[in-house]
């Protein structure tokens, strides 16, 4: 797969990254190279193989349904860039 401006910008949009012309240019090149590297897997036959998404062979651990609110609003917002009246705030969103 050759990455061009369009395909690279489309990915950047999905990933919420804005790119300047220079970044765009070098990313097109880098992505093309990386994808050609990972493309070597296409030769491997994996038809009858189940995917492994985690190597740990164990049952999912379950938690009891006990409620506790440990984090104060103040601690929650300790690192917040911007807040109002205990809320997180973002630029106005129109739904």
């Amino acid at each position: 797969m050759e990455f061009d401006k369009n395909s690279t910008l489309k990915l950047a949009k999905l990933a919420r990254l804005s790119l300047n012309a220079e970044q765009l240019n070098s990313l097109e090149k880098d992505l093309t190279s990386i994808v050609s590297f990972i493309d070597q897997l296409k030769e491997i036959n994996t038809e009858k193989i189940d995917p492994t998404s985690n190597s740990l062979d164990q049952d999912l651990i379950l938690r009891e349904d006990v409620a506790e609110n440990k984090l104060s609003n103040e601690d929650l917002l300790k690192n917040v860039p911007e807040s109002e009246l205990g809320f997180f705030v973002v630029p106005k969103v129109i739904e």
């Binding site: 609110n69 440990k70 984090l71 104060s72 929650l76």
Partner: peptide, 19 residues
């Protein structure tokens, strides 16, 4: 394990995980 109660003050039923 944050509580699911209805009508609490904003952002008071939020754990580190929820945030």
């Amino acid at each position: 394990s944050s509580s699911t109660g209805f009508g609490s003050a904003p952002n008071t039923q939020v754990s580190l995980v929820d945030a």
